[in-house]
Design a protein around this nucleic acid. Structure first.
Lengths: 153, 153
DNA sequence: ACACTCCAACCACAGTTGTAGTAGGTTCAA
DNA sequence: TTGAACCTACTACAACTGTGGTTGGAGTGT
């Protein structure tokens, strides 16, 4: 259920969603200020993108403070990232292996990284197995990391 | 030297470059037929994209057979893929680790895959060490693992 | 020499993206 | 009650993308 159509995000939209995800929620201005100043578009540019994101269903207005609307993300960071990965994987012929291989080949991923990951994963898996006696590698439940919106302008 | 500016490729352009990479070289028609028929645009569409790719310097005309131009890739598959990875990594905050983590989390990468990769890599590295007595994870020189493009359609 | 088939070159066009300006309400401090 | 400082809704627009039509020239079998 809940087909959650992919919601295709463009580069700039992603950039802005990044700010929204980090903020938790905020006004257009707050979201804009969250962006690194080197790449901080005009206020109205950010506003436009937010409107588009709203149309796409990636964010929504949750309330109004003064005359300013407060937005929050509807699409989770994880979901968005996942979509990106799928796209990349598609280009790589669907194989995560070749992707990994290239990461290694270009030195962006070291043997040490892999071992570390392996360790963590092995541990995690063992743990899960003892608690659930079964681990369907397909779980998508979004636990934790919910809010973090403190901000006093 | 040879700065090789990134050459940004769009989705369709990538699709077509994929055909060119697989073919090695070919005419517009051949390239088009290389595409899976479900997603095979009109002849002129492919032609247009190839022209654009040519302008971008991603492909070039190598010769002419009859009155047809034969194109071949200038940008390598690896270079293009690498660029894509970098972009994705940027979104992931530059960390390949989190990318990997998510691959694992969604079950697209299993513990087995990782172990296998680790094994291969360890072996490869050991090997390299014995032959060069030094491996700076930063080398970009094109040693080994050059081609591997056999694939009979 | 024709009729066909295949190409190359252009041209067109709507939809998407990145960027931002304008006009006119709201708020709030004086 | 006024004006500065903010906001929201719109509008604009050029570049980029995906798609494909049109025209006219090149090759080739008969």
């Amino acid at each position: 259920m809940a087909k959650e159509k992919p919601v295709k995000l463009t580069r700039l939209e992603l950039e802005i969603m990044g700010a929204v995800w980090t903020l938790g929620s905020g006004s257009v201005r707050e979201i804009r200020e969250q962006l690194p100043e080197e790449k901080r578009p005009a206020y109205t540019t950010v506003q436009t993108i937010i409107y588009r994101l709203e149309e796409k269903g990636a964010v929504r207005r949750v309330k109004k403070i003064g005359n300013a609307h407060i937005f929050e993300a509807v699409v989770t960071r994880k979901a968005a990232h996942n979509h990106l990965i799928d796209e990349l994987l598609h280009v790589f012929g669907g194989s995560p292996r070749s992707l990994m291989a290239q990461l290694v080949e270009t030195g962006q991923l070291t043997l040490r990284d892999i071992r570390e990951l392996e360790g963590t994963l092995a541990k995690l898996q063992a743990n899960k197995t003892t608690t659930t006696a079964d681990n369907s590698l397909k779980n998508k439940s979004g636990r934790g990391s919910k809010r973090r919106q403190g901000d006093a302008k």
